[in-house]
Each structure stands twice: as C-alpha cells, then as structure tokens.
Design a protein around this nucleic acid. Structure first.
Lengths: 221, 221
DNA sequence: TCTGAAACGAGAGCGCTGCTCTCGAATGAG
DNA sequence: CTCATTCGAGAGCAGCGCTCTCGTTTCAGA
C-alpha cells in the first residue's frame, strides 16, 4: 500500500510538480478516502521526504553508474560523462530535480535520513577526482590562500569522504560542481530562455562548458 | 492601495517565502475583505509577477551599482565585487532570491514584462567583461570549438546586449555566471550544510572561488 | 447643485487543501 | 472462538483562490 501511494505520488510529482502534490488527489486516484492515507504517511511532509530521498537516490545512482563505467578513461572524459549523466537525468525528471536542487519548501526541513542519499552524487564525483590525483592525471597547480577554517572543513570532508585530494584540487572540484548545477538550474528553470536556443545549441554549450571544467580539474590551462 | 498591498506582500515573502503567500492573509493584515483585494490584483499570479519584477530589479540595481562603482578597477576586482554584491543581496533576501532563481512555480509562466528587469544583472556583468576586452585586460585565449548554432546565439546575444566580446570570452563569462549562481544556490538552499561551516568559512570559500573565476575571465592560468 | 456612472468594499458561497476525530468493519494471533 | 490491533470511511475544522452579488462611496459633467 505504501508502495502504491508512493508510485502515484511519484507520477503526480513528475506531471505537475511538488507544489501541486495533494494527498487528497492521490487518495482519490487510488480510490481511498482522504483520511485513510494518513495511516501510511502521517503528513504531507513525510511524503515529501520519501520523494526527496527517491530523487537523491536516482541522481546518485546515475552518477555512480557514470563513475563506474568510466574507470579506464581519462579524467576529463570521466567528468564530462558524469556531468552529462546528471544533466540527462535532470532533463528527464525536471520536477524531481527542482524538488531537491530548487528552492526549499518553506517550513520543510529535510531530515537526517536524506543526507546519505544526497551525498551519493558528490561522492561519485570526488572518487573520480581522487582517482585522477592518485593516477597523476591531476596536478595541484597554484594553491589558493585558504584560511584555517576552510582548511578544517576541507580536512573533515576528506576524511568523511575517504579521499586524498589536496586543497587546491578540492577547491577546483567545488568550482566544477557549482558550475555544473548552476548550468543545469539555469537551463531547467528557464533563465536561458531567449538567450540559448533549446536543443542542439544548449546541448553543445553544455558540453563545451563541461570540457572546459574538465581541463580546469586536471590543472591544464 | 496597490502600493500598500505590495508592501505587505513583500514583507510576507521575506518572512515566509513565496509558497506561503496568501492573498487572504494580506487582506486580513490590511484590514480589508478577501474579495476586495481582487480589485487590485486579479489573481495570485499577478502578485507573484509584481514580486518577481521587484526581485529582479533589486538584484539588477545591486549589480549595476557594483559595476558603476568599480569602473577604474581591474577586471578581477570588478568581477569579485559584482559577485560579492549579488551574494550579499541573496543572503539578505533569501526568499526573494529563491522566488526568481529557485524552482519555478508550476503553472506560473513569467510574462514578458519580467525579461527586461531580469536582464539587468547579466548585462552589468557583460559590460564589465566588454570593458576588459576593450581595455586589453582580457586575452581571448584558446577558442572553444563552437558549432554554428551556438555561434548564432552568441551573435544575437552580442547585438542584443550591445557588447563586443569574442566567443571564447563569452563562453568563459557563462562559466563564471553559472558558477556564481550555482554557488549561491547551494549555500542558500542548504546543500553545503555539514560540509562548509556557515559564516567565515563559507565567506572565504566564496571569495576564493570568485578570485579563481576572475582569473579565468581574464585568461590567466 | 443635482445626477448618474464608475470605482470600491463586504459578504456569501464554491470547490479545493491538510489534518483530526470518531466509529464501524476486517484481520489475525492466542 | 475471542479480543486486541489494524484499517478504512465519514464528518468536520480552518485555511486557501476565486467569483458573484449587492450596497456604498466618489466625483466629473450637466
């Protein structure tokens, strides 16, 4: 039953977006009274949480698959493949993407159970970068002047993720990650409307940008 | 009266976010019946549009001020100042930022009247880049392999914005712009929670990233 | 100064929402 | 076979966007 509800909710999310998600509408479609659905989800927010985890897991799976499938490739290729995979997922599931990477629902605080699924994507990316460092494909390059606080956060991140990546490379990894999601968000949320033609032009611009970020990651000019 | 409604709506947006915006609540606070408010805004979406334009104008103004105040500075400094100004505005008005740069409200299509205010920020940024090109601070560097479609979009953008910027530089400008808003969105939407400590560490990481993007813009390694 | 149209506000009401409470029916372990 | 637990339905509350009607206010032109 819970699975059935989730399935209908998933479809409603895909079709109309998170804001239009209604427990009553889901109950109606299932053929159940609106009050009965509260046996399975104590509140609308609980349903949200389930869908948020589902979305994080979906994008995490896509990222992990891209990471695993490119183990023998060069780092820029691995990065571009990962980025392209995430973008493809986002374009295929825009409302799910907006649910997790768009504006947070006011009054809704994502519980602790979402952090592990949320970390899968970034971790896959960090593994690619760490492999590049270990394999000598990445040169540290100029190291930014970081203060103790940022260095401490970076150190925690390194131990938490279990990767060996120098500060300079980690900084560039953040850069690439931010740029990737900034790009996808701008595309999906319509900020490129009237500027970059959707379709081939948008695809090509994305690829060019990801290639540039790949060069940035390895430390090439 | 319209101004009064807008003022209350603005405060409600700032306090509770766009999703919680209620015409009835606004009417209640003003001391007016819920139906009377429809004399001034024919629908909730119209109110949204007004607030969207207000937000775009606010960030545009901040960007233009940063651009105008740094006319005699180096390009990396101008870029960092602009970026910092936009981030400061976003942190001061998170719900307004989320309204325009977060997930679009499903079923709501921003009308044509929003495109001019929306363009103010990007245009200020492009003017800075164009000044850098004209002043010789920016070297074109390696030119990416762009296809005809992207080149055409870039050409339209150049004429529309009235700036002379080569394709290679325009590509890097997109990169910087995406990274800037990706960074701000990740910060504001909580995706850096548990990774980068809020406050000084987050501020420093942002500055370091913007400096790197400044070097990217001018074409330095 | 009077008149009539336009502008304005209030109230009732429709259908929708999340959520709670109560009560009856099904279920299944002892 | 019994009885506690689980499940579902219905009514109801307060909120929402929005519409319709009707009385009041305002004010320009005759």
């Amino acid at each position: 039953m819970t699975a059935h509800i989730l399935e209908v909710a998933h479809r409603h999310l895909a079709e109309q977006g998170a804001a239009a998600l209604s427990l009553r509408a889901i109950a109606r479609e299932i053929g159940m009274s609106s009050s009965a659905i509260y046996r399975y989800f104590p509140s609308r927010d609980e349903l949200f949480t389930a869908l948020v985890i589902e979305a994080y897991d979906a994008v995490g799976e896509v990222a992990e698959a891209a990471e695993a499938a490119t183990r023998r490739s060069s780092l820029p290729t691995r990065w571009s493949t990962l980025a392209r995979a995430i973008r493809d997922w986002a374009k295929a599931h825009p409302h799910a993407y907006a649910l997790v990477y768009g504006s947070p629902v006011p009054g809704y605080a994502a519980p602790e159970t979402t952090v592990d699924p949320a970390a899968r994507g970034p971790l896959a990316m960090l593994r690619i970068v760490a492999d590049g460092v270990a394999g000598g494909q990445i040169e540290a390059g100029r190291s930014p002047k970081l203060t103790a606080k940022v260095k401490a956060d970076f150190a925690d991140l390194r131990t938490g993720a279990g990767v060996q990546v120098p500060d300079a490379v980690l900084t560039r990894a953040f850069q690439a990650w931010f740029s990737l999601f900034g790009h996808i968000s701008f595309e999906l949320f319509g900020h490129l409307h009237g500027v970059i033609t959707e379709g081939e032009a948008a695809d090509e611009l994305f690829d060019v940008q990801m290639q540039a970020l790949g060069r940035l990651l390895v430390g090439e000019p």
